[in-house]
Amino acid sequence: MRSYAARRAVNVVMLSVTAFCAAAALFSLFFVLGYIAWRGLGALSWAFLTRLPKPAGEAGGGIANSIVDSAKLVALAGAIGIPVGVLGGVYLAEFGGGRLGALVRFCADVLNGVPSIVVGLFAYALIVVPMKGFSGLAGSVALAVIMIPIVLRNTEEFVRLVPHALREAGLALGVPRWKVVLRIVIPSAARGIVTGSLLALSRAAGETAPLIFTAFGNRYWDSGFLQPMAALPLTIYTYAISPYDDLHRQAWAAAAVLMIFVLAINATTRLALRTQAMEAR
């Protein structure tokens, strides 16, 4: 048996090591954020946000079309993915006890684990190949496939958290089950469902891999969903691997824009969920 002093020394040393690990993890976050701010914020300007890209090799230009197209892509993805995810999640929470529920849950977990590049491959085979061309539609479908399992499991979780007593109260008033679910259960879980959907949207907004060979990228305004469309993460990627310093500078500025957007959604929704959890306690 080791002496008490030795054991205590081990205790102090090892616990300090764990504190150091946590500090390192936090440092990496601050390093990432600080580095983006340092390289990106300086290159940001009003013109950068509102202009179109210049031809390759020419300095200047902006990312206005990428921002607008990104918003369009994510909006369509949300319009497809959120209803499917929310209603499917309500099914799992309310009626998903049996084998069918287990199957749906299993498939959602499988989809959730599929690498985003493979989802892109799927959208490519499903839409780009038959339609013989890259399109924003294919990009949105890929993003929707990524969103659905996230929204679904999140919705299930929050609908499950609604106390059983509320369902009983509704039923005991002589309200049919479907109305109880739609008018009492879902509104009670609304905050969680909305924040979860927002998080899924922000995740989709940051995805690059599934867009490379679906939305493909575009340098002009007003691209429709049946044409190639630009996307902010895609622009960052193509600029980053280009040989021009000016495009590198623009990639950092675009990264700062994307980061601000993603952080804003994440911080506010997670804080909202947290305060809700506090209130529930």
Partner: peptide
């Protein structure tokens, strides 16, 4: 209630269809 349950199931099953479709396409 039955109509409600079946229409929700339709959305839930689309996840199963999607997972199968991904595998099949690949």
């Amino acid at each position: 209630d039955r109509l409600f349950r079946w229409s929700l199931l339709l959305f839930a099953l689309s996840v199963v269809v999607l997972a199968g479709l991904v595998a099949w396409k690949l």
